[in-house]
Amino acid sequence: MVRPLLDTHGRVHRDLRVSLTDKCNLRCTYCMPAEGLPWLPKDELLSTPELLTLVEAAVTAGISEVRLTGGEPLVRPDVVEIVGAIAAMEGPQGRPEVSMTTNGLGLTKTASALADAGLARVNVSLDTLSPERFHEITRRDRFDEVVAGMAAAHDAGLRPVKVNSVLQRDINDDEAVDLVRWAVEHEYELRFIEQMPLDGGHTWQRTEMITGAEILGQLRTAFDLSEVPGRGAAPAERFFIDGGPATVGVIGSVTMPFCGSCDRLRLTADGQLRNCLFAQGETDLRAPLRAGASEAEIHDLVHECLSLKLPGHGINEPGFLQPPRPMSAIGG
Results as ranks from 00 to 15, higher is better:
residue 167 L to C: 09
residue 169 R to Y: 02
residue 142 R to Q: 15
residue 147 V to Y: 07
residue 162 K to V: 04
residue 161 V to E: 15
residue 155 D to K: 01
residue 175 E to T: 11
residue 177 V to I: 12
residue 135 H to I: 10
residue 144 D to N: 12
residue 172 N to C: 09
residue 141 D to Y: 03
residue 141 D to N: 12
residue 160 P to H: 09
residue 173 D to E: 04
residue 187 E to I: 02
residue 186 H to K: 03
residue 169 R to H: 03
residue 151 A to L: 09
residue 148 A to V: 12
residue 137 I to H: 07
residue 162 K to I: 03
residue 157 G to V: 10
residue 153 A to K: 06
residue 190 L to Y: 04
residue 147 V to L: 13
residue 198 L to W: 00
residue 201 G to Y: 09
residue 134 F to Q: 02
residue 145 E to F: 09
residue 140 R to P: 15
residue 172 N to P: 08
residue 163 V to N: 03
residue 201 G to W: 13
residue 181 R to T: 11
residue 182 W to S: 08
residue 170 D to L: 07
residue 165 S to F: 06
residue 162 K to A: 08
residue 181 R to A: 06
residue 170 D to G: 04
residue 186 H to D: 05
residue 133 R to C: 12
residue 187 E to P: 00
residue 180 V to Q: 00
residue 151 A to Q: 05
residue 187 E to A: 04
residue 172 N to I: 05
residue 175 E to S: 13
residue 189 E to V: 00
residue 177 V to F: 02
residue 136 E to W: 12
residue 145 E to V: 03
residue 175 E to Q: 12
residue 181 R to S: 01
residue 197 P to S: 06
residue 179 L to W: 00
residue 157 G to D: 08
residue 148 A to R: 15
residue 156 A to Y: 11
residue 139 R to K: 10
residue 138 T to D: 07
residue 202 H to L: 06
residue 191 R to P: 04
residue 180 V to S: 00
residue 201 G to Q: 14
residue 166 V to Q: 14
residue 153 A to D: 13
residue 138 T to N: 07
residue 157 G to R: 10
residue 183 A to R: 06
residue 170 D to W: 03
residue 144 D to P: 10
residue 194 E to C: 06
residue 134 F to C: 14
residue 153 A to Y: 08
residue 137 I to L: 12
residue 164 N to R: 05
residue 188 Y to A: 04
residue 168 Q to D: 12
residue 174 D to C: 03
residue 174 D to S: 04
residue 204 W to D: 11
residue 185 E to P: 01
residue 158 L to S: 11
residue 144 D to V: 12
residue 177 V to M: 03
residue 202 H to R: 13
residue 201 G to K: 13
residue 136 E to Q: 15
residue 164 N to M: 05
residue 152 A to M: 15
residue 184 V to G: 00
residue 187 E to C: 01
residue 173 D to L: 02
residue 167 L to G: 08
residue 179 L to R: 01
residue 145 E to Q: 14
residue 178 D to P: 14
residue 183 A to F: 01
residue 178 D to W: 13
residue 162 K to D: 14
residue 185 E to N: 02
residue 202 H to V: 10
residue 174 D to M: 04
residue 144 D to Y: 09
residue 174 D to Y: 02
residue 159 R to D: 15
residue 169 R to F: 03
residue 150 M to E: 07
residue 182 W to R: 13
residue 156 A to R: 13
residue 152 A to S: 14
residue 135 H to R: 14
residue 179 L to P: 01
residue 141 D to K: 12
residue 135 H to D: 14
residue 173 D to I: 02
residue 172 N to E: 15
residue 148 A to H: 15
residue 153 A to F: 08
residue 200 G to P: 04
residue 188 Y to C: 03
residue 149 G to I: 03
residue 192 F to S: 12
residue 150 M to Q: 10
residue 173 D to Y: 04
residue 143 F to P: 00
residue 178 D to A: 14
residue 162 K to G: 13
residue 187 E to F: 02
residue 152 A to T: 04
residue 156 A to N: 14
residue 204 W to C: 05
residue 195 Q to D: 14
residue 200 G to C: 09
residue 169 R to P: 00
